[in-house]
Amino acid sequence: MSEEQSIDIEKVADLARIALTSQEKSKLSGQLDSILEYINKLNELDTDNVEPTAHPHSVFNVWREDKAEKELPIEEALKNAPKQRQNMIVVPKVVE
């Protein structure tokens, strides 16, 4: 963890796809900086030879057999869609 971890709020908010007002930006970066400063506490710990924990229990190979179960009826699947046409969800043009 770097010592000067002033967060690039612009860039991170863009990655997170959240539009922020300039007030929100300045308030948030202050708060996040102090949270990160606190989090840097973890640097006190030597974890060189420690395995990371991704799951609380060490379990492997939990799977299902390849059997088709039932789908959602189409009207259920689309009932919350903000906008639909021809049984598909309308989205604004994707700019690539």
């Binding site: 789908e71 959602l72 699947a77 049984n87 969800i89």
Partner: peptide
């Protein structure tokens, strides 16, 4: 048909 093969 569109969106016939969907579940949660």
């Amino acid at each position: 048909g569109p969106n016939e093969l969907v579940d949660p």
